[in-house]
Design a protein around this nucleic acid. Structure first.
Lengths: 232, 232
DNA sequence: CAGGCAGTTTGATGCAGATCAAACTGCCGG
DNA sequence: CCGGCAGTTTGATCTGCATCAAACTGCCTG
């Protein structure tokens, strides 16, 4: 199957409005490959050779400096990553590795930049995409600067709960070590944070979480539209 | 003087390549106003009514949640802020206040969006601008997640030193309370951090800093292109 | 079924940085 | 020249979170 046969890719905000010819040109040049779990797809500092689209599985974005490492974000199907580096023809700021066995579409950076030059609708779609990415990072930055570890966890639980139907239970989408790093804390501390949330009706059983006191948890979390809302 | 008379604005990456007519249309609709120090120009959560360009003075971007407040960034002449919110027609994620008496160009959001629709060169320039903004926040996020307070300060000093001619001395561009918040720490802790840097040749006299052991300070700071480089 | 291994939890301890309180500094206006 | 005041520094203490170490859990595999 050719990548352009995947309607979900064509339906992405980034590609939806571009011309058929420009889209086909991008897809012709692209590679659609399957990678095993824990494979490092890109390394920060390397020149941006490809724009990536995750079509199956999941990818973790992370950064290293000195000995330390921090998870910067997770990309799930269907999502793209490192668009900014590709457009700027600059070095990647983040590394990426597969969490599970994953299928990834790789579009050569040159072709993306060519399409950006040639196709006005694509250029406009990129603006929207970048504005969204930008606002997401600002929100994460606020989350980290303005909240304690427990508050970050509480808000994250409320978010997953909402995403998954708000029926009183939720499934953690990642293992706890990854979640901890994503929230900017150690696995040990995440475990203790879950314990501190027990009085607020948070029951943990592996990756399955039960929320029996939503009001209490919400009062603790004090969610803020300008940090937690995914859209807008 | 009309705002379009300021060649520096026209020369900004954001406006440089747009058509004269589109630029004139933007400037016709804009207000160019002087504000006193410590005036709150925008408040997070408000709808994005204007794109701002600082032409004189300085503006602090900050965010609040619960009782806490954090400085998110500083904008100096000639610089713009909250472009993403304007394009998305969404709420501001950050508040902004003048640091000193400042002159600010305010372009109505509607006109910016109209120019974005009408002028292709402007749309492309916006992509570059947003990509830069995005990468800047990612760098700040990495700075915060991967470094201790002292390392953040050391790297910041090296940056200002470089910006100001690298002659062994530098002037702090903001007062220490603002610098502290920008670096994600308290004023008290900043003061102590300066003390811890004394063995590395950092002499403090008010806002004037002398660096007498650049190698030592650099070894401590371990600067990283992918965090500290302003361009790229 | 035993062993091993990765992920998680628990406990003990240490440290970075926050908080609270008070003193100090320079600067301005009377 | 004398308050007064904002910004800064210093000291004492507290707390959140990291670190180190060890036990526990489930799951996979031979």
């Amino acid at each position: 199957m050719r990548p352009s046969d995947i309607p979900e890719i064509r339906a992405l905000g980034l590609f939806r409005s571009m011309s058929d010819t420009a889209f086909e040109a991008l897809m012709q040049a692209a590679y659609h490959q399957t990678f095993p779990a824990q494979l490092e797809l890109i390394r920060e500092g390397d020149p941006a050779d490809f724009l990536y689209v995750v079509t199956e599985g999941g990818v973790e974005l992370f950064a290293r400096s000195n000995g330390r490492e921090a998870t910067m974000g997770m990309v799930n199907p269907i999502g793209t990553f490192i668009l900014a580096a590709v457009l700027k023809d600059a070095a990647y700021l983040m590394s990426a590795r597969t969490c599970q066995k994953s299928k990834v579409l790789m579009i050569p950076a040159e072709n993306v930049r060519a399409a950006f030059e040639a196709d006005e609708a694509f250029a406009r779609a990129i603006v929207v995409e970048l504005a969204n990415c930008y606002r997401s990072v600002v929100k994460e930055h606020k989350d980290l600067k303005l909240r304690s570890a427990i508050e970050r966890l509480a808000n994250r639980l409320l978010r997953y709960h909402q995403d998954q139907g708000a029926n009183g239970t939720l499934e953690l989408p990642y293992d706890k070590r990854t979640l901890a790093s994503l929230l900017g804390m150690t696995p040990e501390n995440l475990s203790r944070a879950f314990n501190s949330l027990k009085p607020y009706g948070v029951q943990v059983d592996g990756t399955r979480i039960e929320l029996s006191d939503l009001d209490g948890l919400t009062a603790l979390a004090k969610p803020n539209k300008l940090i937690d809302d995914r859209s807008s």
